[in-house]
Computed example of a mutant assay.
Amino acid sequence: MKTVSPIKSKNKIKLMKDFLENHSTRDFCLFLLGINTGIKLQDLLSLRVHDVCQQDGKVADVLSIPSYSNPPVYLNAPIRSSLKKYLSENTLIDSDYLFKSRKTSNPITRQQAYRITNAAAKNAGIDEPVGMITLRKTFGYHAYSQGVAISLIQKRLQHASPSETKHFIGVDVEAVPVKIDINL
């Protein structure tokens, strides 16, 4: 198995998002959730519509799954917007898998998720190996570089120690400039 790294270039991430958005709303949502939440692939694929929607049918602000309650998984505006579009384009009921296969009522497979991400990476000109763990690493790397405490990233990624998290996101190898701007 090849070792994968986070996608550090925001421009490459944008190229991947553009490719996926033009290709499939479902695939775009999968990618957005992966890079913006850091949850594990198996948990992403196990999501059901009721995990992202409130009882009134509106997309929730926070993901509703117990394994990610501390800290809760915030669904930012781009995620909510893409989920709203995806749900409006498809006839899914509350109990359906969010990332449902087009052929069955099951979720897409890990292999299909890999193919989706790999195609987007190739299109963006990423030559390094890319896998589904890349999405979690990308989340952690960018959260850390934007000043999120390593302890919070560690909790989200469900790691045992801060050093494990730093190694996972690749910041123990190179220094990531963290801008702490206290503007009182």
Score class of each variant (00 low, 15 high):
Lys2Asp: 10
Thr3His: 12
Val4Cys: 08
Ser9Arg: 13
Lys10Trp: 07
Lys10His: 11
Lys10Arg: 15
Asn11Trp: 14
Asn11Arg: 14
Lys14Ser: 12
Leu15Phe: 07
Phe19Arg: 03
Glu21Arg: 15
His23Thr: 12
Phe28Pro: 02
Thr37Asp: 07
Ile39Cys: 05
Gln42Lys: 14
Arg48Ser: 01
His50Ala: 09
Asp51Thr: 06
Cys53Gln: 13
Gln54Phe: 10
Gln55Asn: 14
Asp56Met: 05
Ile65Gly: 03
Pro66Glu: 15
Ser67Val: 12
Tyr68Gln: 05
Tyr68Arg: 07
Ser69Pro: 06
Asn70Lys: 14
Asn70Val: 11
Pro71Met: 05
Tyr74Gly: 06
Leu75His: 06
Ile79Gln: 00
Arg80Leu: 06
Ser81Asn: 10
Ser88Val: 08
Thr91Phe: 12
Ser95Pro: 06
Ser95Val: 08
Leu98Val: 01
Lys100Asn: 05
Lys100Leu: 07
Arg102Pro: 04
Ser105Arg: 13
Pro107Gln: 08
Thr109Tyr: 07
Arg110Phe: 07
Arg110Lys: 15
Tyr114Met: 06
Arg115Lys: 14
Lys122Trp: 07
Glu128Ser: 15
Glu128Ile: 11
Gly131Gln: 01
Leu135Ala: 04
Lys137Ile: 06
Ala143Ser: 10
Tyr144Val: 01
Gln146Gly: 11
Gly147Tyr: 07
Ala149Lys: 13
Ile150Ala: 02
Ser151Asn: 14
Arg156Trp: 04
Gln158Ala: 11
Gln158Phe: 04
Gln158Arg: 12
His159Arg: 09
Ser163Lys: 11
Ser163Cys: 10
Ser163Gln: 15
Lys166Met: 15
Lys166Val: 03
Phe168Val: 04
Gly170Trp: 00
Asp172Phe: 05
Lys179Asn: 11
Ile180His: 15
